[in-house]
Amino acid sequence: MNEIFWPEGFLPGFTENFVSNEMIVAGMNAADIWPLLSTATLWPTYYANSANIRFHNAQGPQLEVGARFYFETFGFPVEAKCTEYVQPMDGQPGRVAWHGWAGEGETRIDVHHAWLIEDLSDGRVRILTQETQKGLPAQDLARAKPNPMINGHQDWLDGMVGAARQASERR
């Protein structure tokens, strides 16, 4: 299986917080999942912890490398820039990642949120999302029990898979 590519300064284990969520789902493929992830304005339709998504510079709603966008999640107003975007095709996994930031000074949080969507054997798809975070708010999130990031990202995965199932039933 493939892995996430990490930019310098965001390697897990060397940041204040790291979370990883993964699902492997039978009866689906990357093409079922990809539009729900790559079209950021769809996120609030299946993930309640995302809101007010808007793109800067007449970009969007499709993510692409360099796209600047804004959204609200986990109580943070997040500015973000898409740093990786590779559609799944020909046995290669789909990849999307962004650098997000919120706050200033001691309240600043910087994150690298990455996704990997890959087809597996026997009609299965793997959805992996991982995020590293830096800053004092990241330390607080890492100590919280239950972990809001792990639970929130699991809700995102569950919602995405549910939305993909609903879409395939309508076809």
Rank of each mutant, 00 (worst) to 15 (best):
T39D: 14
A48G: 14
G66M: 04
I24Q: 10
M28Q: 10
V65A: 11
F18Q: 11
S50T: 14
M28W: 01
T45P: 10
A40E: 10
F55P: 02
N21D: 14
A58C: 08
A31W: 00
G60C: 04
N29W: 01
P35L: 02
T41K: 12
L42R: 04
F55D: 00
I33A: 05
A40L: 14
D32K: 07
A48N: 11
I24F: 03
N57L: 03
N57H: 07
N57S: 09
V65S: 09
I24K: 07
A31N: 09
W43M: 12
V19D: 14
E64P: 00
T41R: 11
G60Q: 04
Y47D: 15
A40C: 10
E22L: 13
I53A: 06
R68S: 10
A58N: 09
A30W: 01
A31R: 06
P44V: 03
A30Y: 01
G27M: 05
V19K: 00
Y47T: 12
A51L: 04
W43D: 15
R68C: 11
Y46V: 03
A67Q: 05
P35M: 05
P44N: 07
S38L: 03
T41M: 11
N49I: 04
A31K: 07
V65L: 09
Q62C: 10
L37Y: 06
T45S: 15
A30I: 03
L42S: 12
N49W: 03
I33R: 00
E64L: 02
L63D: 04
A58W: 01
R54H: 14
E22D: 10
A48V: 09
F18A: 13
H56M: 08
A31Y: 00
T41Y: 08
M28L: 14
A58Y: 03
E64V: 01
D32G: 08
N21S: 11
W34L: 06
F18T: 15
D32C: 12
I24W: 01
F18G: 12
A31I: 00
I53N: 05
T41L: 10
N49G: 15
N57G: 04
L37D: 06
G60H: 04
A40W: 12
